[in-house]
Structure formats: structure tokens, C-alpha cells
Design a protein around this nucleic acid. Structure first.
Lengths: 111, 111
DNA sequence: ATTATATGATACCTTTTGGTTTCATGTCAA
DNA sequence: TTGACATGAAACCAAAAGGTATCATATAAT
């Protein structure tokens, strides 16, 4: 955590397990920093830095409400990941198809 | 890169841009280390380390063939990522549904 | 007005990461 | 069997990452 939050992309953002936990915690409820960090063994400052990284990657939104800052999930940001993944899905689909036809041809031989 | 490759998970593995490039390069063809590293501006050793990390995460397979080691994509490993993502898809689906009904109710009022 | 709360900003520290260079080893070819 | 090629392994390095503690500031509550 560098202090100058220099453009983390979504892949880096979700690489950290703590940040993935943060995302799941913020999926259903909007929460302020103190309430969030109470759920973690690390300091409030550390949690706050993770939240900034997630925010920078567009995965959560920050909203000031009086003296607190409330965070919640911005699920649309995960679309980029979904698209990245979809490119590779065809490769595992291809392998599954190959396996299926192999099994089927095996059955044909047996009959 | 630590030398002792201590269990990288798939999220860490895909966090690095070089490693993501490696994956796309190995998606179609199986390739040996030297041929792979010729495509990158970094040293062969560095590429080799990235390949080990990907291999450890199950994203590529290593196969020794004579004096060379050939790598290729193991696309099934990405299933874990797909499952993680699918949990969040319902959140953005929910938002889309809310938006749609808002737009529709607006149209109703206009008529 | 004064105190307590919620958070951000800084400075600092340690470990991990991504990279390099050099050396060792196994394999192929002449 | 000697040399060239493909890799792995080790030692080392600078920068980034994750974390802490402390200080400053804005907002609420008494």
C-alpha cells in the first residue's frame, strides 16, 4: 500500500483476499469504514487503504454522509472480468466437446 | 518472485499483466520457454518464473520434451474464477432489472 | 464551547514481487 | 566426445504491497 494510489486495475484489486472479503461484505449492504473494519483483524487504516484501491478500480462507490464515508459494491465493474473470462470459456468448452465425442465414439465401439 | 514458489492462487496468478499475456499466448499453441520469452521484453528467466507461477495455480501445464519444456493453457482452472464471478452476477442483474422497471414505469407515465 | 467520533493523511517498516546476472545440468548434433 | 542449446537454480536488488502508529480535521453530540 503505497500511499499514492497509482491506478490499480481490477485484476490487481481482486488479487488480495482481504479485498475479496470486502467486496462480499459490501455486496448486500452499504457500510461506513468503522463498521467494516470491525470485521477484520487489521487496523482501520489498512482497511481504508484497501477500500480506496477497490474504489479506484471502480469496484465500490464512496459516499460521504456527515462524518462518515459509506461504501458499497459497484457490481458492474466486474463486467470487465467477465469479458476477459468469456474469451477463455471457448477453450474449455472445446476440451469438453472433444472429451464428449471421445466418450461417445468409445460407446459406439462397445456396441 | 521468491524462488520458493509458495502457493499462488488463481487471483494472484492473473493479477500480473505479463502473466495474462502468457495465458493468451498459450491458449492456442503449446510452446517451449525460449520461443515464449522471445515475445517478451524481459529475460528468459523472468518469463520462466511467471510460467512456474501460472503452473502452480493450475493455469498452464508443463511437459518435458527432450531438452525443452513446453507449456500450454489449462483452461479448466479458470472455472474457479467463473464461479466466484457468478456470485456477483446476480447483483448487477438486480440493478439492471431495477433500471429496466424504472424506465418502463416512466414510459407508462408518459402515455 | 467542548468533547467525542469518523475518517483521511503521513511517515515508517517489513515482506513480497518482478526483475537481473551468473552458474550448473541435461540433451541434441557434429 | 565435444560443443551448442534449453532450462533450472541461486544470489542479489529495487520497488511495490500490506501493514502499523500517529497526527490533523471535519462533524456530532453534550
Amino acid at each position: 500500500m503505497t500511499g499514492t494510489y497509482a491506478r490499480h486495475d481490477i485484476f490487481q484489486a481482486i488479487a488480495d483476499p482481504t479485498r475479496r472479503e470486502l467486496l462480499s461484505m459490501l455486496a448486500e449492504q452499504e457500510m461506513p469504514v468503522t463498521a467494516i473494519s470491525a470485521q477484520f483483524p487489521i487496523s482501520r487504516t489498512a482497511v481504508s487503504k484497501h477500500l480506496h484501491i477497490l474504489s479506484e478500480a471502480g469496484l465500490v462507490t464512496e459516499r460521504k454522509a456527515g462524518r462518515e464515508t459509506r461504501y458499497k459494491l459497484q457490481p458492474e465493474a466486474l463486467l470487465e472480468l467477465k469479458q476477459w473470462l468469456s474469451y477463455y470459456e471457448r477453450f474449455w468448452d472445446k476440451k469438453l466437446a472433444a472429451l464428449r465425442s471421445f466418450v461417445e465414439s468409445g460407446e459406439t465401439q462397445d456396441k
